[in-house]
Amino acid sequence: MGEVIVVTSGKGGVGKTTTTANVGTGLAKLNKKVVLIDTDIGLRNLDVVMGLENRIVYNLVDVVEGNCRIKQALIKDKRYPNLYLLPSAQTKDKSSVTPEQMKKLADDLRDEFDYILMDCPAGIEQGFRNAIAGADSALVVTTPEVSAVRDADRIIGLLEANEMRRTHLIVNRLRADMVKRGDMMSSDDVVEILAVDLIGVVPDDENVVISTNQGEPLVGNDTLAGQAYMNICRRILGESVPLLDLNGKKGLFERLAEIFRKN
């Protein structure tokens, strides 16, 4: 029986789609059968982040309206044997689909897939209600900024009100250098404020932009963000993985100091 996970945030632009793409691809790399569903009807984006935009024939609304079978709308990612995308519709709006229909769709996919990831639109309106309808657990993405954390708090409240069983937090775009000099909230600060379990911290890494440009998720490669996303995937599978040291690049002086400290 597959697990349905919704990736949500409240605020736009904090990295929901990037997170969905990378966590989904990472789980597929770890030999899980995964389908990513873009629930942002009217603002389709997951397809371009995944680099699958040229292969869309049918979409989410087609499936829900019965214009095609689910199998026909699923795009198989040829780079990974276990990864599929159900793209959103670009020309419809959020009211084309109801929460009941989304719940049924998610349940129909459970037999076939280990993980069903819902990429939720920004906001708390119908698009949000559609995306969380069939979900067993939620990944709440936030950045260490007051606006994003405030919206995440609202989302966590709404998830609780909707009886979401498990909610995990991802702190995205953290800058270790700014945290160090006190000019950015740390992931601990954000966790303290939101009082929810942390499942990962992703550094602000320019490689994320590069990978999005190329339409190829960076999860699992040797960049800091790639490692951070892979760690999140392992934690989803139940492994206990320590948090990444985000002070990756060290200066010569720091490295020398470390050597002396060790001896």
Partner: peptide, 19 residues
């Protein structure tokens, strides 16, 4: 105060009234 702790304090206050 560092801007990070200013942010944290402001958030705590705004969330009290939000919640």
């Amino acid at each position: 105060k560092s801007s990070g702790s200013v942010a944290k304090d402001r958030l705590k206050l705004v969330l009290v009234s939000d919640r």
